[in-house]
C-alpha cells in the first residue's frame, strides 16, 4: 500500500503537467482564429444587423445589386459547368494517358493557384483584348472578350479549372482499371462502360470540384477587376461593387453586399461539406 502512494501522486502530477501544457496549442488556435478571422467577420455581421431588415433588403435588392448578382453567379455557374466537363477530361487524361510532357501538363494545371490574381488579370486583359494574341482571332467576328462579360467568364474559367481537376484526379486514380474490365467482360460497350460504370462514382467529386470552383469564382476580385471594364449592368460583379462602395465611403452599401456574398460562401461551404459526405457514401 505504502509503495503505491508515491506512484499514484506522480501519475496525477504527470497528468496535470500534461494537460496544462497541451492547452497552449488550444489557446493559440482559438485565440488566433478569433482575432484574425472571427472578430472581423463578427464586426461585418453586427454592422449589417444594425442596418435593419427593411433597409438591408432595399440595399441588397437595388437593380444595380441584382444585376451584379446575376452577372457574378450566372457567369460563375457557366464557367463551373464548362470546367466540370473540361476539368474531368483533363483529370482523365492525366490519370489514364501516358504522353510526353505529362508531368509539365500536370504542373501547368496549378498555375492559377500559384499566380497572383492581379497578374492573371493583367495577362488575360492583354492577351484577350482586340489586339492580343487570342483576342485578335475573335475580333474580326465582332466578338470582344476583354472588358466585357466574356472577359469575366474567361477569368472565372482560369481560376476555377484547377479545383475541378484536383478534386476529380484522386478519385479517378482510385478507380481501379478492373472496374472497366469487369464491365467489358460482361459485354458493356465503351459508351455503356463510361456512362454506367466510370461516370457515376465520379459525379460527387465533379460536383464538389465545381462547387469549390464556383465558390472561388463568385468571390473573385483581382483578375476580374482588371479584365472587365466594371461598367454597371454590363460586367460589374458583386465583389467589385463592394469595393466601389467602400471607395465611395458607402459603408452600409458595402456591408450589405458583402454580407450577401458572405452568406453565399457559407451556403457553398455547407454544400461542399454535404457533397464530400455524399462522395464517401459508397466507400469501404
Amino acid at each position: 500500500m505504502t509503495s503505491l502512494q508515491p506512484n499514484l501522486s506522480s501519475t496525477r502530477q504527470n497528468k496535470q503537467a500534461h494537460s496544462t501544457r497541451i492547452s497552449l496549442p488550444w489557446v493559440i488556435t482559438i485565440g488566433y482564429l478569433s482575432l484574425i478571422l472571427l472578430l472581423p467577420l463578427a464586426a461585418l455581421i453586427t454592422r449589417s444587423l444594425t442596418i435593419g431588415p427593411v433597409e438591408f433588403w432595399q440595399i441588397a435588392t437595388t437593380p444595380l445589386a441584382r444585376s451584379t448578382y446575376e452577372i457574378t453567379f450566372v457567369t460563375a455557374l457557366a464557367a463551373g459547368l464548362i470546367n466540370g466537363i473540361m476539368g474531368t477530361l483533363v483529370a482523365w487524361i492525366l490519370v489514364r494517358y501516358q504522353f510526353p510532357g505529362r508531368r509539365i501538363f500536370d504542373g501547368v494545371i496549378d498555375i492559377p493557384f500559384a499566380v497572383p490574381t492581379s497578374v492573371a488579370g493583367l495577362v488575360l486583359a492583354t492577351i484577350y483584348n482586340d489586339s492580343g494574341w487570342i483576342g485578335q482571332l475573335f475580333a474580326p467576328f465582332g466578338i470582344r472578350i476583354a472588358f466585357t462579360r466574356l472577359g469575366v467568364f474567361v477569368a472565372m474559367l482560369f481560376i476555377s479549372l484547377p479545383f475541378i481537376v484536383r478534386t476529380v484526379q484522386p478519385v479517378l486514380l482510385e478507380l481501379e482499371p478492373e472496374i472497366e474490365q469487369a464491365a467489358w467482360s460482361l459485354g458493356a460497350s465503351e459508351a455503356q462502360t463510361f456512362w454506367r460504370v466510370i461516370l457515376p462514382p465520379l459525379i460527387p467529386a465533379i460536383l464538389t470540384g465545381m462547387a469549390l470552383g464556383l465558390s472561388r469564382a463568385v468571390g473573385e476580385y483581382g483578375s476580374v477587376v482588371i479584365v472587365a471594364s466594371s461598367i454597371p449592368f454590363r460586367d460589374l460583379i458583386a465583389p467589385v461593387l463592394v469595393f466601389q462602395k467602400l471607395e465611395q465611403y458607402d459603408y452600409d452599401g458595402a456591408t450589405v453586399i458583402g454580407t450577401v456574398l458572405l452568406l453565399v460562401s457559407l451556403i457553398l461551404l455547407l454544400l461542399i461539406n454535404l457533397l464530400q459526405q455524399w462522395s464517401r457514401r459508397y466507400a469501404d
Partner: peptide, 23 residues
Amino acid sequence: LLSIIDLPFSVSPVVAGLAIVLL
C-alpha cells in the same frame, strides 16, 4: 472547427478586407 479554419478559402478576399475595415 475544421470548417471555420477553411472559411478563408471560400470567403471573397474583398469581403475579408471589408470585415477588417469595419473592425
